[in-house]
């Protein structure tokens, strides 16, 4: 049948086309990594998302070039101005079953690849021995919390509010007040940092692209994620901003994560705690003055 053979020729033509598309993409990738793929480099989960994305992008581009190529070829080859009769074909069951099956197989492959990568993205690794000292993290049942194999990490609570972020650094000692900062989160390198994200008002979304995906901050819920900054990123400041519309100043609800070496972080944390203790003492002293009925100096 002429219809069949023509379709067969077409199929043969598509293979080199797809190969060319893949080659173009693979060689173009390093140069164009900035505009064609998500951010990465600050944490293994961001890197894993990036590589999963690249697999899907390659598959997507092959499909794109194959289908658009077929469409353009069809438009060029079968334009009426060539003066031929249209073939009155109502369908082709084999062909139709073929592309239904093809699409289904592709979808199954993509699902398998995604599941294969999921662990790397979802499950935090242990901290490096050279990392900041870590403590056991309490389990948070009923949430999407995932703990490292040794159940240890640095726990930082992230609270979104209109229009900023507050970070509470769990110092492992329930008796003392945990240090906290706003907007800038300080984090040690080589250390698994677990974030429990929540909100004190409307919904916000925590997103530092180079450190992995975004997680919504919802009042009443703990949304868990993690990052682990490699040693060579010490001194780097990773930027991000709220990704869920939270009101008029949504655009200015920025955040940054400043990477410190474990020893720098230790020093910073100690200084922060001293600062907080000092201000608590000052406040107590002032309160004593006021309660004694005297004027504040």
């Amino acid at each position: 049948m002429p219809a069949q053979s023509s379709v067969g020729r077409l199929r043969q033509g598509l293979i080199p086309l797809a190969a060319a598309a893949t080659a173009t993409l693979l060689f173009a990738e390093p140069a164009a990594a900035d505009w064609i793929s998500p951010e990465r480099g600050g944490s293994p989960n961001a890197d894993a998302i990036h590589s999963l994305y690249m697999i899907l992008l390659v598959v997507g581009l092959i499909v794109f070039f194959a289908v658009e190529g077929l469409l353009l070829y069809t438009l060029w080859k079968f334009k009426a101005s060539r003066g031929h009769e249209a073939k009155q074909i109502h369908g082709n069951t084999k062909l139709e079953i073929g592309w239904t099956g093809g699409a289904a197989v592709l979808v199954v492959i993509l699902a398998i690849v995604s599941f294969a990568k999921l662990g790397e993205i979802r499950n935090p690794p242990n901290s490096d021995p050279a990392g900041f000292r870590v403590a056991a993290i309490a389990e948070d049942p009923g949430t999407n919390q995932k703990l490292p194999p040794n159940k240890q990490g640095l726990h930082i609570k992230v609270t979104g509010y209109q229009y900023g972020w507050r970070y509470t650094y769990d110092d492992g000692n329930p008796a003392t007040q945990d240090p906290y900062t706003y907007r800038d989160l300080y984090a040690p390198t080589q250390t698994t940092v677990l974030l429990s994200i929540t909100s004190s008002d409307v919904i916000h979304s925590w997103w530092i692209p180079e450190l992995g995906g975004k997680f919504d901050a919802v009042d009443g819920f703990n949304n868990w994620t993690w990052f682990k900054i490699p040693a060579d990123k010490a001194g780097v400041s990773f930027r991000g901003q709220c990704a869920e519309l939270c009101g008029r100043n949504h655009a200015n609800m920025t955040a940054s994560v400043k990477a410190l070496t474990p020893s720098e972080f230790d020093a910073w944390l100690t200084a922060k705690r001293t600062e907080l203790d000092q201000s608590a003492k000052d406040a107590a002293a002032q309160r004593a003055v006021v309660e004694a009925g005297k004027e504040l100096k």
């Binding site: 079968f78 592309w99 979808v107």
Partner: peptide
């Protein structure tokens, strides 16, 4: 993901409606 299958079917059926036509 599954929606991709019938969507793909439609796209191919549309292209093959054009294929061997007189456009």
């Amino acid at each position: 993901f599954l929606i991709g299958v019938p969507t793909g079917v439609k796209i191919f059926n549309w292209i093959f409606t054009l294929y061997q036509g007189a456009i």
